[in-house]
Design a protein around this nucleic acid. Structure first.
Lengths: 201, 201, 201, 201
DNA sequence: TATGAATGAGATTTCATTCAT
DNA sequence: GATGAATGAAATCTCATTCAT
């Protein structure tokens, strides 16, 4: 007789969930299979019914993060810019500000939603470096375009600027977002104004 | 005639050096004592002549970084500001810029000098969080003062700004400085202008 | 079909048994986990399924001995004295003799039954000193009472006498009982007559 | 230039002394060469100038004890019995008592003198069993002779009695003598009366 | 005589992983 | 689908002992 709810897919999901929590909290090496399975209410051999190894489940979590991350990126790019703000002279700054705000708010919103995956995929995982490099590239391209358009200063190095923004995102995510100190929107707002206007009065 | 390197202090130094490299490259858990000692041209028991445990040598390296870091901070604070630039109206921005540049250039210079220790003490070690929090606090205080003086915008959140700058420093250190892509001075220069003036044309 | 002995409780028992033998034969330090597990037909990691450490299994054996020892003490105290021998003048000596004989025979019987545990708990273990001190105290109290009643000489020091008897018990256990040279009853009989009557003709 | 008093014989003696203390306090396995040499104010290699191994120094200490022990035995046997007490009827008991008292007092006196060696040679060492067996044999012979002479009861087993006395000696030495609770003479006196007269009033 | 430096050998313990049911 | 039991492989650490000076 099958225990209610003890079907394979659920067990697998519970393992993933438990693993995400543990990896996020303690990192890869400090996390033991024994802890994961006991959190999931299973035993060690059961783990190997669903995952080939400790590494495998970790990688699956990283991929999960990456897939969702890419999806988020696509959504954010598909979102049409507000057409009212296009073309008007005085709104050039506001347009930039608005687009950047939406993208950052979207990113922070995403990162803040699944904290464990973010911790793993953005900070712990081995692929996080590659992912961040891609993110940096995207920012860089965006910034370079804006520099070409004359929106951004010509005497600033857009690669450095993109790297700066990436670091800023990382740090705010870690210290303010994942700790719940500030909501995504506030962070986005502050970052946008800081990066566009600077701090000088 | 003494065999070359058969000197206790030298062996200890070689172990520290090797450990720094390994810890920096592979992190705490992936680093094995066996690797450290073989890099240092010794056998495992010799390790325990000089350090009580793997943890102990790691902590010693973290402390080493912290001590040097504090020292660097003290030096940078003792350096007198250029007196010519004080008090003149039009130079307010240049004064701020100059001070911030010197501090950042000093910091980047320090971090870039001993790369292994920086990797350990700034990115890997358990105390790195505390150290960064202290650094963030210092930046925050500095920014808040400048906001009070009217140098900085009143509608910006100085805590967030400080956090942003810290993240920027982290990321540039990791991606540009430790990889040798850019020199400390260039990074400092770009960061200062970005944070003071923003990106808008 | 379950492989013979592939039952957790049995494995645990085999480990305890093997450990008792080894500790008894060779003492704590000379006993290696590797010997215990190989005697039990297991490998080293299996040991740690059942016991936290070498110290832990040793302590468990000591406790086992102590528990059984206390139980034996309780039984022996609850056993009613032979009512026929009570109250009659000429039987005072016989009464004392009988009681002492039963207690000693019970003690020797117990110690002779599980030789390994006795070796560990009575001779090897760290708690053996405390246990013996308690035993000595009990003997001392008993002797003191008999001295008060006028059964025992007033010019003898009951503390010393108790200590003497304890030493006697120890030595006979080690040399005669655990080696199988003499049965518990004979030892008890001889000791009783020696301690009550002395050796003089 | 030779440090004053740092000649070989003295160093050797200091090592023996330190080793005796450590072995007596902590037993063979818990005692480390490093502790011995540091107590003796030397370094580890120096140890091997004087002794071949840890085992060797331990054996030397055991032998030292044995030699002194044998010497003590010889002295005690050579001591002439008090001639006044020979041959008189009523003094048979007193003669036995006196001889036994002198021997026990001598033994306790010896054992109480060098506590560390006693601990090692009488309780810890591997040869202690043999030594005690010899001691037991001697007592046994003595008792058997007395039984032949009609001094001791014929219905007592002299082997057991000897074993009992040995245990008594051991225990009193450990608990009363080495702890300083009672002087040798008192112990001897009590033991003699106990073993000759028994406890019965 | 003495030692600073180094090591061989081996012990305990941990953990991811598998076997048999 | 699940598990009780077991293990291979490896890591950290200890200690008696030796080498070279």
């Amino acid at each position: 007789m099958r225990k209610k709810g003890s079907n394979g897919q659920e067990s697998r999901a519970r393992l993933l969930e438990a693993a995400a929590q543990e990896f996020a909290r303690s990192g890869y090496h400090e996390t033991k299979i024994s802890t994961i399975v006991s959190r999931a209410g299973l035993t060690q051999p059961s783990f190997y019914l669903y995952f080939q190894s400790k590494e495998a489940i970790f990688e699956e979590l990283m991929e999960l993060f990456e897939i969702q991350f890419k999806e988020m990126g696509r959504h954010s790019r598909e979102e049409p810019d507000d057409p009212d703000n296009v073309g008007q002279e005085g709104n050039r700054r506001e347009a930039s500000e608005g687009q950047m705000y939406r993208e950052l708010a979207g990113l922070f919103g995403f990162l803040g939603k699944n904290q464990d995956l973010t911790q793993i995929g953005f900070f712990t995982g081995t692929q996080s470096a590659a992912l961040k490099r891609r993110l940096m590239s995207a920012i860089h391209s965006d910034f370079a375009a804006k520099q070409q358009n004359g929106h951004f200063r010509h005497d600033a190095d857009m690669e450095i600027a993109a790297e700066c923004l990436l670091g800023t995102i990382e740090c705010l995510t870690r210290e303010q977002l994942l700790t719940g100190k500030r909501p995504p929107e506030e962070l986005a707002q502050e970052v946008v104004r800081l990066y566009l206007l600077g701090l000088m009065a």
